[in-house]
Design a protein around this nucleic acid. Structure first.
Lengths: 183, 183
DNA sequence: TCCATTTTGTAGCACTTGCTACATGTATAC
DNA sequence: GTATACATGTAGCAAGTGCTACAAAATGGA
């Protein structure tokens, strides 16, 4: 029994790396199994079914994202919207979390069409982000803070979207625009 | 020859409606054909292949989106960022353009994984939006206007994303946050 | 009318999909 | 050692994929 769990864990890690590399394009059981260096037969021995594999992998990635965010900034740090956007942009853009953001967008899209594990995952990441933003906003009034947090979250996600289908320069531009206006 | 084109046009319109209803979830040739009330054999008689069908349908939808945007606002109207966000939110959210926005997000996600017709379409819609935003921004300095436009575009897209995977209330909140800060 | 072209249906191919039945190997408990 | 549970390979199924070959029908021009 122990061995199964260990092997399952190893497979899961390789599959996470695979998803971060290739997105949701290659998520067939045979492809996932190949990424984990095992047979599809074994993949479905370690996991209930394909949905179970994806849910586990994506959930783990989402947890790491939230962890990364909270580790990167002292938990009691409070910032202005402009500072927060700058910080968030530095974290989410570029190589560090770029793949995660792309994967996240694909999850949202998959969630939009109601596919099985994606809806929950997309929501999970979104909420995690929102809590992080809210927690570091230097705004007393709760109503205003929540509205600002929602706006900043949308902005961060939107910049990711913008970069996916145009280029990095557009992202830079958007960040610059945000910092000037949100000061 | 004429008949083929006419039938092709009819099929195309039904397929557009189908895509707006169901997103990119049901894009098999048989499913697209069913949506157009023809046999798959005929669909591939009217169009080169599946990619051709989707490219034609999505391209047409994207053109309509751009048209809707430009029709909704006088071409010489200039607005502050806050006014523009309010206007854009009113247009893109809700029943009027909601389906289009959802479809757009799915296109971006598909583009992220490099699938055939989606990359071009996503870019096309994004650029159309950007031009529209830029054209109605009441900002003299070109550099500042372009940065602000990119930021607003990201914000609009981000709000769409936010609404897809949480709910409408979050979108409201984000719009409120945006209008207070961008004034 | 006859011929050529366009339009349409039937059937199917080669491939991928998620998943499973069955058998065999291997380790562990007694 | 033998029984029992776990682990893993081989093979394959039923359904779905995009697409096409072939032939019959409809259409139009001479």
């Amino acid at each position: 029994m122990a061995k199964k769990d260990v092997q399952r864990g190893k497979a899961l890690e390789k599959i996470q790396a695979h998803l971060l590399e290739t997105g949701l394009a290659e998520t067939g059981v045979r492809q996932l199994a190949a990424a984990a260096n095992i047979s599809d037969r074994m993949l479905l021995y370690y996991f209930e079914d394909k949905t179970d594999v994806l849910a586990a992998a994506l959930s783990s990635i989402s947890a790491k994202v939230v962890m990364t965010l909270s580790m990167a900034v002292p938990s009691d740090a409070k910032m202005s919207p402009a500072e927060l956007i700058t910080t968030a942009a530095a974290l989410t853009r570029g190589d560090a979390m770029g793949p995660e953001m792309r994967l996240f967008v694909e999850c949202v899209a998959a969630a939009a069409r109601g596919e099985a594990p994606y809806e929950a995952i997309a929501k999970q990441i979104m909420e995690g982000f929102l809590i992080w933003v809210d927690a570091h906003l230097d705004i007393e009034d709760e109503g205003e803070r929540r509205a600002t947090a929602a706006m900043l979250l949308a902005l961060i996600d939107g910049i990711a979207l913008l970069e996916i289908c145009t280029d990095e320069a557009r992202g830079d531009l958007a960040v610059r625009g945000a910092t000037t206006w949100l000061d």
